[in-house]
């Protein structure tokens, strides 16, 4: 058949339209689902904006020098603040970081580089993942049984160790990912120059993987700073500034919890202000994590 004949044949036969009609059923269905997805996405972001609005309006109104430095007020007292809770939160997160970061990074070095496929590595990797899913209050129960009962008192130590248990798996898993990203060529080059394994790790792998490791640490710190369940019955609370690590210690999150149920406007306003400060602390560490997280390799 010649070309002309083919064209003629094609014109004679009834071809279905290849253009999609807007009012066709399947197009309508597609449009409807698209609209629903947009609505779902907008609905899902409402809580965040509502929380931020409340924090800024309710909390922002009360954040001043007095709130940031004074001690928590008693029942009908006016004024007051949560300076001791800010210090307590920072101290306990500090203890948790000092305990969990070195241990976590060393464990990550073993998991990522020294012996990634050994039985002990896959077991501890798996258990670290299980630990990330462990309810945070169980870390508190553990620290109560292991530290509070041993020391005979609620303390900043117990709170810090409970937070360390929660931070450890995050640090291990993120640091492992970061160290695994270091190109094999760089390690090969170092080994080729006669480095021992620990020299390769200290001089090549850690410096190269550092941004990712720091990101993981910052995220773990941010998570720990916002935690309250593990502190409930390990650090308890205190109405005074911390003077030693072996005594009950105030924290922002427990202060918010305690004040939220009180029938006094003053305390509730302070709870919002403390929430704003707590969210800002968590946010700062999140932002730091993002800044460090820019890949440089």
């Amino acid at each position: 058949m010649s070309n002309a004949e083919l064209t003629a044949a094609a014109q004679e036969s009834e071809l279905p339209s290849l253009n999609r009609q807007i009012l066709e059923r399947r197009a309508l269905k597609s449009g409807l689902l698209t609209t629903l997805t947009w609505i779902a996405a907008i609905l899902a972001s409402i809580p965040l904006f509502s929380v931020i609005y409340m924090l800024v309006v309710q909390g922002g109104a009360r954040v001043d020098l007095e709130a940031l430095t004074a001690l928590p007020p008693a029942g009908f007292e006016m004024g007051g603040g949560f300076g001791n809770a800010i210090v307590g939160t920072l101290v306990m997160v500090g203890i948790a970081a000092i305990v969990s970061v070195p241990l976590g990074i060393l464990a990550a070095i073993y998991l990522a580089i020294l012996d990634p496929s050994s039985k002990i590595a896959s077991l501890s990797r798996f258990l670290a993942k299980v630990l990330t899913g462990m309810p945070s209050i169980l870390a508190g129960v553990f620290a109560y049984a292991a530290v509070v009962l041993l020391m005979g008192t609620y303390s900043a130590w117990a709170g810090g160790i409970a937070l360390a248990v929660l931070m450890l798996p995050t640090v291990v898993l993120t640091a492992e990912e970061a160290l695994k990203m270091v190109p094999q060529r760089m390690k090969d080059a170092a080994f080729g120059m006669g480095c021992t394994r620990s020299q390769v790790i200290w001089k090549v792998v850690l410096p190269t993987g550092l941004p990712g490791v720091v990101t993981g640490v910052m995220l773990a710190v941010a998570g720990a700073a916002g935690e309250s369940a593990p502190l409930l019955f390990t650090a308890l609370f205190s109405n005074y500034y911390i003077s030693e690590l072996a005594e009950p210690t105030a924290s922002l999150s427990i202060l918010i919890y305690n004040f939220s149920g009180m029938p006094f406007d003053n305390q509730i306003e302070l709870a919002w202000a403390a929430s704003l400060v707590l969210v800002l602390i968590v946010l700062v560490f999140n932002i730091l994590a993002r800044l460090f997280g820019q890949p440089k390799v």
Binding site: V51, G226, E227, A229, Y257, L278, V279
Partner: peptide
């Protein structure tokens, strides 16, 4: 990132 107690 918002702490649980703030949601409460």
């Amino acid at each position: 990132a918002i702490p649980s107690v703030v949601y409460g």
